[in-house]
């Protein structure tokens, strides 16, 4: 029942630096693309980049990549519930 910390995966420094670099590049991109106007797609682009960044943080910095199935399923559930709350509200506000 007692898991031991040392058995745990230590993320290599190089991986952490690479993730950081990717986050920086994505930040540059998301700021850079604001000089183009895609109309409605602006929000979609911004949120896609943000979600990619969030994914990097969750998977590597927060070690979700190295966690077992239980925690991964839990994280997935939480975001699904949030998506449901926001999504179903739009049945009201989008059709009013």
């Amino acid at each position: 029942m007692t898991g031991h910390n040392t058995a745990h995966h230590a993320v290599p420094v190089r991986t952490n630096l690479l993730v950081w670099a990717a986050l920086m590049v994505l930040t540059t991109i998301t700021v850079g693309v604001t000089s183009f106007d895609f109309g409605f797609l602006n929000v979609v682009v911004a949120l896609t980049v943000a979600t990619t960044k969030a994914g990097l943080v969750i998977l590597w910095f927060m070690h979700l990549r190295y966690e077992g199935r239980v925690i991964r399923l839990m994280v997935f559930t939480a975001f699904v519930i949030l998506a449901i709350a926001i999504g179903l509200t739009f049945f009201d506000v989008a059709y009013r």
Binding site: I81, I84, A85, L88, F91, D92, V93, A94, Y95, R96
Partner: peptide
Amino acid sequence: GSLVWAHHMFVSGMSDTAVMVF
């Protein structure tokens, strides 16, 4: 239970689509 909340709001003035979905 997390999908049905707006059935408390059928006469609140929300959209008819939402009324039917919920």
